[in-house]
Nucleic acid binder design. Structure first.
Lengths: 230, 230
DNA sequence: GGGAATATTCCC
DNA sequence: GGGAATATTCCC
């Protein structure tokens, strides 16, 4: 036994125990040297185990074997599992072999429930998710405030539109009345016979003159009648 | 000892050991019976401990005491901590008292690192946070789409306002020209001497008649001149 | 065969 | 004094 540093006590003790020819009556290598057998469990537990471990229970011994990944070798005769009471039990592990204590360091004890890694990963995930939440929350607030601004803008725009529509409608009324007034006035003064070469034009800043029915939003009821240029 | 079910082996063994008058040479109650003393550590560890535990190390014994919340009682003489080698050491726990084994069930072993609870809580938190993230994400999308709708609305409103303002301005121009026309027309026909009792009124649906400077957006330049009702 | 609590060891 | 790995026990 060289590497008593890395290899757990259970493995070195077990390997020593199996190698030891003094205990061959109770525990020894199989013929091929790649597994070991326990004979006479009762006496092995009470007489041999306490010499190497702090107990004399076969169950505790087997528990450790399982913790280190040993498997019980099943003995099958003519298709039926042999279940002799107090018959030899055999255990095997790929790195537990006769004369090869250098392989022992490859045998790893199972960690109870891998919680350490789990918890660490969880902690990382937690931090990531938390950061993500706060990021999204920040964006949410930003969007919310933009939304509120837009809503206020919108309300203002609606008010302005309402205002403009009302003004527009009032202007339409005014235009209508002005035109009615003009029409009435012109009719009353027609007798004067004031002739012009061209109809009266309103100053339109050099742009195309408008017909009265173009200024007016509603289509003219009687087209022929309302062709007076203004 | 009744409740050998609930109380860990270490506590019942320790209590028995301290109560046992056969071992009083090495371990016994203090005078008040609310703490115990260990005399002659070396012999106690090698001779007494193995009779009750699976080891003969004082350190392991003390480790267990610490695991169960026992505290070493400090002996202070004249302001200086006594640190005698091999002098008696004293340990105390509020629920470890002479003759009161019924208190032992109140002594709780420290859990190694509270990972079980930790992990469970973490898992819960994780689920909660995840749900929260998805909730916020959902809201985000909803708000985003509302935002886009509002933006489109807003653009439409701006277009309408621009349109209405243009119409308004055009109408103002028309009204201005109509009035100019009327003024010109009236002036040209003044010689006619067409007299009325009241100025011409546009039909205003029974409402208060408007003065021309009220219809017109701009304030009248010469107030006295523009008092013509329309 | 293995989960989980307690016990022992090793180490800081 | 206590963290952490290994060992032992108890239990499913």
């Amino acid at each position: 036994m060289k590497q008593n540093s890395n290899v757990p006590a259970f493995l070195t003790k077990l390997w020593t125990l199996v190698e030891d020819s003094d205990t061959n009556e109770f525990i020894c290598w199989s013929q091929e040297g790649n597994s070991f057998l326990v004979m006479n469990e009762q006496r092995f537990a009470k007489e041999i185990l306490p010499k190497f471990f702090k107990h004399n229970n076969m169950a505790s011994f087997v528990r450790q074997l399982n913790m280190y990944g040993f498997r019980k070798v099943m003995h099958i005769d003519t298709g039926i599992v042999k279940q002799e009471r107090d018959g030899p039990v055999e255990f095997q592990h790929p790195y537990f072999k006769h004369g090869q204590d250098d392989l022992l360091e490859n045998i790893k004890r199972k960690v109870s429930n891998a919680r350490p890694e789990d918890t660490k990963i969880k902690q990382e995930d937690l931090s990531n998710i938390l950061a993500s939440v706060q990021n999204v929350n920040g964006k949410q607030e930003s969007i919310d405030s933009r939304l509120n601004t837009l809503k206020r803008d919108n309300e203002g725009l609606w008010r302005e539109i309402s205002d403009l529509r009302q003004k527009h409608s009032q202007q339409q009324q005014i235009i209508k009345k002005l035109i009615q007034f003009i029409v009435t006035f012109v009719q009353k003064n027609r007798i004067m016979g004031l002739k012009r070469k061209r109809p009266i034009l309103l100053n339109n800043n050099g742009k195309k003159p408008k017909y009265i029915h173009e200024i007016y939003d509603e289509p003219p009821l009687e087209h022929n009648k309302v062709c007076v240029e203004v």
